[in-house]
Write a protein that binds this DNA or RNA. Sequence first.
RNA 1: GUCCGGUUCGUCUAGGGGUUAGGACACCGCCCUUUCACGGCGGCAACACGGGUUCAAAUCCCGUACCGGAUACCA
Length: 572
Amino acid sequence: MTVRVRFAPSPTGYLHIGSARTALFNYLYARHTGGKFLLRIEDTDLARSTEESTRSILDGLKWLGFAPDEEIVFQSDNADKHREAARRLLAEGKAYRDFTPKAEPTDANVKEAIKERARQQGGEKNFRDNPYRELSGEESDARAAAGEPFAIRLKVPDVRTGSDSDWALPTGKTSFEDQVYGLQERDYAETEDLVLLRSDGHPLYNLAVVCDDIEMQITDVIRGQDHLTNTHKQLLIYMALGVEPPRFSHLPLIMAPNKGKLSKRKHGEVVSMTTYRDAGFVAAAFRNFLALLGWSAGEEKEIYSLDELIKKFSLEGIHRSNAVFNFHEGDPKRWTDDKAIWMNAEYIRTMPLADLLPLVKNELKANKLWREEYAPDGRALVTSISSTKSQEFEATTEMGERPESIAIDRPTHGSHDWFVRTVDLIRARFFTLKDFSTQGRAYFSEDFDFDAAAVAKNLAKFPELQEWLPELAGRFEAELGELGVAGGEDLPADKLPLTDACCADRFFEANIETVVKAFAEEKGTKLGVIMNGARTLLTGVAVGPSMLSVFETIGLERTLMRLRSKVAWNIQ
RNA sequence: GUCCGGUUCGUCUAGGGGUUAGGACACCGCCCUUUCACGGCGGCAACACGGGUUCAAAUCCCGUACCGGAUACCA
């Protein structure tokens, strides 16, 4: 039988991290086994379910890339079938009408109230002492016909009397082999006569789940460990309905840093998937992070592509202990789990450029930094230029020799190739996609801010730069500008200036280096002072790639403008 | 209270009778360097506790502690 799993969130909030991981594991299991991944929205609690929440969950799943293989099931659409099942169990004597008036709902602290009640009952609990449990069929029917409201409860076998257990196991306990936690057993006496149908006719969770899982032909239920006791209740319903239950796998929970419950109310947006999407996370990176929270392939490897996850995923690799989602409240720089941030940065700097480019494009577009020249003629943002990472490395090790490919490929400023090269250059120090429009803004726009700390460290401390940097601009213009004379006549062939539509055909790293070094020497200052001052003026920030590449990437024209600008000098 | 789970560095985890208990993140140091949150090298840091079983226990068994989940006419 082919595997059919479902992810079944209730739409009472956004998709949070725990649900997202449950969805991921279901998805991976389905793909690994060649089965189907289904989605069911559990909206039976009309009072708490919202359409907005459903949309938010769908958004989160879409971002993560988990598309269901069949149409989405809305549980509320099946309410009639659930009622029908309850009536059937009633008719068969496996359930009974409970005419006890509905208790007033305890307002705020439901959980606490329940706990308190249970504590007071102590060991004296008896789930079979409902006065309506053994009401005769005639009287029950009569009272119902008279319009008296009632809930329908499952008649869980009473092991003391041994009666009404013909449909249940004689062992007196429900048991199942959990794929993660192993054999699970629970005495019937520990399970109450759970309500199947509310007195207002609404089916309740456990009944709805069982009916829908049967209807959807679910073979494997993979869900949070908080459902462990529900499983015993549901097993009873399966038995009463006379249907073979699916396999069950329960997942360890994801906890807050204090090992307490991770809640939407208390922890807010740090647990919401859309937060990560909006914060510039790469979906593949977050998926990767999620996969390693409670699961391991048993090897020393951290980065997994989706295909690898699918290939290696197994229920055996799921842990039994809860995992802590280690974010740091009140620390803006470490607002979420360090490892998630690292993983995202790792993806940004190592993922194939062809995959990264569209994400950067979206980010730039959203910030009005995108220019159509970056992707002319609707050309896909895929490039023949491969990452220069390794080439850069060689360039610095082989005595500054410039690899041929780079010299030849030096693209026109603002072109598609320039865009690709620039993204590749600046991504090494970025953590999120947002960085492309913030830290990296100066590469794509004249309208960028100056980081006060950078100004203080690299400009304010060296007032002489206020004269020197514009002077450097003049030097660039004279020596490397259109009419200038190249600094080194005896440069090797691959370093000779290229003829280029751009005005700055001599403005590339080797020449820039010559000019700046001579300039620093002439001023009797350390090269770093000039470079860092220029960096701040050119990019607004104190961090970035090698300044020589920055000069070249920004281009002569803009370099001159920025070196001569007084704007940054007025910032304190 | 009761039932059910769990416990290896701060966090995510590998290992499951004999290991210098491994990796990753974070942190610290050094190197590289014109800056840097890139990179390289190194360091700090863990088997909850107590009893057994065994030649040998982080690993198996029992207990204790602690943590978590469940205990609704919520899902």
